[in-house]
């Protein structure tokens, strides 16, 4: 026992600082201690369900009064609606408004999950590649299929830059093709990477707080990082959504 406390003190003194910045991303069953199977109810399930609940409260209960002069909660919902609606309309044009509910779903899910992840001790669903890759692949496949359905073979004109000199066009086509297929990769890794990086950095600073001498700096740093993360949580949701709109615009109007 004595050695145990001694070891803990030694760890706290910084001779062997112990960081577990990635432990917060562990998926574990909510009930019992078994394996995590496909249908196991895990902390992922819990926080996804909380995201649904938050969206339901904000978008459905908040607007239940249908007031012409909106109250506080209703104007939040209207603000979110107007924000995404304007984004879709500005970037993709009027004919993109058909897909507004899908884009709104993406935006609301990502922004809610990001903010829920900022609650201390919570689990951040959007920090997992498994989640963001599904989102990004869904966007990528939808947009690609939509492009071919709407434009037929002329969708390939997206890769044939007609404004470039003829000699350069094959090279540009290859570059465009590669960048097109990198889209889902960057799309998903940007979101998960940003969220994961922020949370891991906060955890690292929290590890430094074990050293008494620098713990005030550590706490200040955590506070500053937290502020930055609040910003990042929104901006990454915004960026994910607006890039979805840009890809959708490419599918609807491949000739720029």
């Amino acid at each position: 026992m004595a050695t145990e406390t001694h070891g803990a003190e030694a760890a706290a003194e910084g001779s062997s600082l112990v960081f577990h910045p990635m432990d917060q991303f562990i998926v574990k069953p909510l009930f019992g201690h078994g394996d995590v199977g496909m249908f196991t109810i895990t902390n992922v399930t819990l926080w996804l369900a909380l995201a649904i609940l938050a969206i339901f409260v904000m978008m459905v209960l908040g607007t239940s009064r249908r007031a012409v002069v909106p109250g506080r909660s209703q104007s939040v919902a209207e603000l979110a609606y107007g924000f995404v609606h304007k984004m879709v309309e500005d970037v993709t044009g009027k004919d993109g408004l058909k897909y507004f509910p899908y884009i709104m779903t993406l935006f609301m899910f990502i922004v809610t999950a990001n903010f829920l992840g900022l609650i201390p001790m919570s689990f951040t669903t959007t920090s997992h590649f498994a989640v963001t890759v599904v989102l990004a692949l869904a966007v990528f496949l939808t947009v690609t299929i939509l492009g071919f359905v709407k434009n037929g073979a002329s969708f390939l004109g997206l890769f044939w830059v007609s404004s470039a000199p003829l000699a350069l066009r094959p090279i540009l086509a290859i570059i465009e093709l590669i960048s097109y297929f990198v889209r889902p990769v960057s799309h998903s890794i940007r979101l998960a990477g940003n969220v994961m990086a922020g949370h891991a950095v906060i955890k690292v600073f929290a590890g430094f707080a074990a050293i008494a001498a620098i713990s005030p700096i550590s706490v200040l740093a955590i506070t500053a990082m937290y502020g930055l993360e609040v910003l990042v949580a929104f901006i990454q949701a915004y960026v994910f959504t607006i890039l979805t709109c840009v890809y959708l615009k490419d599918a609807l109007h491949p000739h720029h």
Partner: peptide, 28 residues
């Protein structure tokens, strides 16, 4: 990295798809 743990992916994808469908239905 927990993000690269293969045995959790199925679980996450399963619940995510359900979540997205539910959110879509609520919103739309």
């Amino acid at each position: 990295m927990p993000q690269l743990c293969g045995e959790w992916i199925g679980n996450q994808v399963f619940w995510l798809v359900i979540t997205l469908v539910v959110i879509y239905l609520i919103l739309a």
